[in-house]
């Protein structure tokens, strides 16, 4: 790993844009093209939305952006309730569902996505995108 950026963010909607801007900046520095930067920005926004919405009483969540030279690895970790990922169902497109789109978007835009979740012990979304 060349460098990493770590942020501790308040679990409040108005700070998610700080996470998005930081991710865009790092992605730009690493040489991603405009389309990939937009993808990364949205995936980070969705992961942070998740942390804000499901953080319970925890005041903050953590964002880490790891510059691996050939790829960017992003980790978003909250201390919320965690969730049953086996029960997660991808939304059926065309069915006009208002929920469940966030994770679907992340999986569609990033090259690799891993979700670690433990009931009562938070959720960590680890995702990466390769520099083309």
């Amino acid at each position: 790993m060349r460098e990493s950026v770590n942020l501790s963010l308040p679990c409040r909607p108005e700070y998610v844009s700080v996470a998005r801007l930081t991710a865009s900046f790092v992605a730009n520095q690493m040489g991603f093209d405009i389309e990939a930067i937009e993808d990364i920005k949205l995936a980070v926004g969705e992961a942070c939305n998740n942390a804000v919405l499901h953080s319970g009483n925890s005041p903050t969540y953590q964002l880490e952006l790891k510059n691996m030279e050939s790829s960017l690895i992003i980790e978003v970790k909250d201390s919320g309730r965690g969730f049953d990922k086996e029960a997660y169902k991808a939304p059926e497109l065309g069915q006009l569902q208002e929920n469940g789109l966030g994770l679907f978007i992340i999986k569609s835009l990033m090259d690799d996505v891993e979700i670690q979740t433990f009931e009562g012990n938070g959720t960590k979304i680890i995702m990466s995108k390769d520099v083309e």
Partner: peptide
């Protein structure tokens, strides 16, 4: 400039 799943959720419910 930007829309995320929460914004799309508003559009879907408004569309209905």
């Amino acid at each position: 400039e930007y829309i995320d799943s929460t914004g799309l959720g508003v559009l879907i419910s408004f569309y209905k």
